[in-house]
């Protein structure tokens, strides 16, 4: 009896010749799924679309994958929904993978549902857990109501089973030894000019300054309870003293106190898992907590003793956040001086 096959594809994302970090995170999950589903004959392939991205194809082949489907064409230089979806649709219809995984980036959140609609199949968004059950079905765990609720999703009767994963949901796994086969596809049979309805005019990306939130050992997060832009400066001082980074909630972002949207934590922002998270003036709405729940130690300072944030904390302080942050700054500076003089 022939072994049951399980082909998992990861659609990777590249911007200006660089792989998006989330693609590697997703790839790690694909490899894990195949390993876990040992009863099945599993294989992992990645799909890479771009213009002159041979080096990325090489790089990807070393991640423990069986194949790298590589489509190279000047028209694929930048992600564009029509061209990327057209190529992927033709590839998927030809190869019939069982599972298709995407990073839920700005591009991925367009490309994945587009493809799912074209293939009339199911897509689960922002999965926080993926498993293969005894029937060989993909079990996708997805958040709803800002992470307050998690639900299982199946895609029982259509194929492929599709899922997207938000950046930072999973940590990057080690690069595995081995080398997958690079399959260079002929773009001219996969992409036609009439597929493309929108023309990309410009792609602008900037490097955010400072330590990225997701790499910081200490995250100082501020919410509406910080009260003012002036008080916000205290959080930045504290982060500097602790060599950490400052994150924020949506209300604080809306007040214009923060460094920008790239510092927002939660379901519509970043997921962080620092050694220590210190929340200041944050009530602890579900959509924020979902982005910090895997942190090492969680501390919250909030005037409201009944704020949900306290329940999600290892330690909590019922007091004015500004006052506590000031005291903490003073204490840290004092102990540093003692250390220096001692």
């Amino acid at each position: 009896m022939a072994e049951k096959r399980l082909a998992i594809w990861v659609v990777v994302e590249q911007n200006q010749g660089k792989l998006a970090p989330v693609s590697i995170e997703v790839l790690g999950q694909a490899v894990r799924l195949v390993e876990a589903a040992s009863a099945l004959s599993g294989e992992v392939a990645v799909v890479l679309l771009g213009d002159q991205v041979e080096d990325l194809a090489e790089e990807l082949s070393a991640y423990g994958v069986d194949q790298v489907y590589w489509v190279d064409d000047p028209r694929l230089k930048h992600y564009q929904n029509d061209s990327y979806a057209a190529v992927l649709q033709r590839l998927v219809e030809r190869e019939k993978p069982d599972i298709l995984l995407f990073g839920a980036t700005g591009a991925g959140e367009e490309l994945a549902p587009t493809l799912a609609a074209r293939l009339s199949t199911g897509l689960a968004a922002h999965c926080t857990g993926l498993d293969i059950n005894a029937d060989g079905q993909l079990v996708m765990k997805v958040p709803a109501f800002g992470g307050r609720v998690l639900g299982e999703i199946f895609c029982p009767s259509t194929s492929p089973q599709m899922a997207s994963i938000k950046p930072g949901t999973f940590t990057v796994t080690e690069r595995r030894v081995g080398r997958g086969e690079i399959v260079r596809e002929d773009a001219s049979s996969l992409l036609f000019d009439e597929d493309i309805r929108l023309e990309i005019m410009d792609v602008v990306q900037f490097e955010p300054s400072g330590l990225p939130l997701e790499k910081a050992d200490v995250v100082i997060a501020g919410g509406y309870g910080m009260g003012s832009k002036k008080n916000w400066g205290l959080l930045e001082q504290l982060a500097a003293e602790l060599q950490g980074a400052v994150g924020c909630t949506r209300p604080a972002l809306d007040e214009g106190w923060t460094a920008g949207e790239h510092t927002m934590i939660g379901t519509s922002g970043k997921t962080v898992r620092p050694k220590v998270y210190l929340g200041c003036g944050i009530s602890g709405a579900a959509h924020h907590v979902a982005g910090i729940k895997d942190s090492g130690v969680i501390i919250n300072v909030n005037r409201d003793a009944l704020a949900p944030a306290h329940a999600y904390s290892d330690y909590c302080v019922t007091d004015d956040a500004k006052k506590v942050v000031e005291a903490l700054l003073e204490e840290i500076r004092r102990t540093k001086n003692e250390d220096d003089s001692g």
């Binding site: 564009q80 700005g106 023309e199 005019m201 792609v203 990306q205 900037f206 490097e207 790239h262």
Partner: peptide
């Protein structure tokens, strides 16, 4: 359209 740390501009 917003993308990570930037945007993509399209015409159609």
């Amino acid at each position: 359209a917003k993308m990570e740390n930037g945007y993509r501009e399209s015409r159609g």
